[in-house]
Amino acid sequence: MIQESLEKMNPYIPKPATVIAVKNESLETKTLRLELYNWRTDFVPGQFVQLLLPGVGEAPFCIASSQSDQKHIDLTIIRRGILTTSVHYLRPGDAVGIRGPFGKPFPLEALEDRDLLIIATGIGIAALKSLIIYAVENRKRFNNVMLLYGARFIEDLVYRDELKQWEKSIDASITLSKAPPEWQGLRGRVTDHLGALNIGKGTVAAVCGSPTVMSSIADALVVHGISTSDIYVSLERHMKCGIGKCARCLIPGGKHVCTDGPVFRLSEISAGAIGE
């Protein structure tokens, strides 16, 4: 009881969760399945949580699991820094802390009954996975669902099992910019394959990737006739508090990624907010 009221009062206090499964996605990437201890989230695709590793610190990650299961959350984490390296040593049964979910999600109702184009590059697919699952689970609510997933090397591809599942109901294609000779799929960058897709004025796009790639994708989508108010980008900043107090996630224009985002309409943010 005391614990509960403390959390309600203080948004900085993490809530307990247990790692119940760890899945190797690629050489550098793992997916943690967390069971929330006596609480449930009410997340909507696009939101993020702060993951606390006891003794190491805290970092923000987008939830990469189905909205229909609010007792568990999946986090796909690539090894990049001190905390994410420590994440790779977690085993089932380990205790972690979770704060959140935070941020504004994808406006799901605005996306429905339209052609949905999901473009992810690299680990950016983790931020869009909950949206992809939502589209797969509620396939009838969308017209045409296209997924374009780009990676550099074949070893970098994540969600291989899920992709096979998704392919059954949505139009998924993978492109590798440094593909091995035996690669059967698309080659090159995601922007090279936009012309082959059936996109037009009615299409709504969700994009996530590294900042530089994301701004070039956004430019290419505008060239292909999608209006900037129909392009949603999921931005990345090193958010520390998650509630708009630490100003670490401020983007040009004065918006906070943690409270006003991380999902933004391209028309809402000023030029240069995405990229370096």
Partner: peptide, 19 residues
């Protein structure tokens, strides 16, 4: 050496913040 707290059973000892 940081060893992450390992749970015995389904509910872990977890993080008990003191504030």
């Amino acid at each position: 050496k940081i060893r992450f707290p390992t749970a015995e059973g389904p509910c872990p000892v977890a993080i008990l913040p003191e504030y």
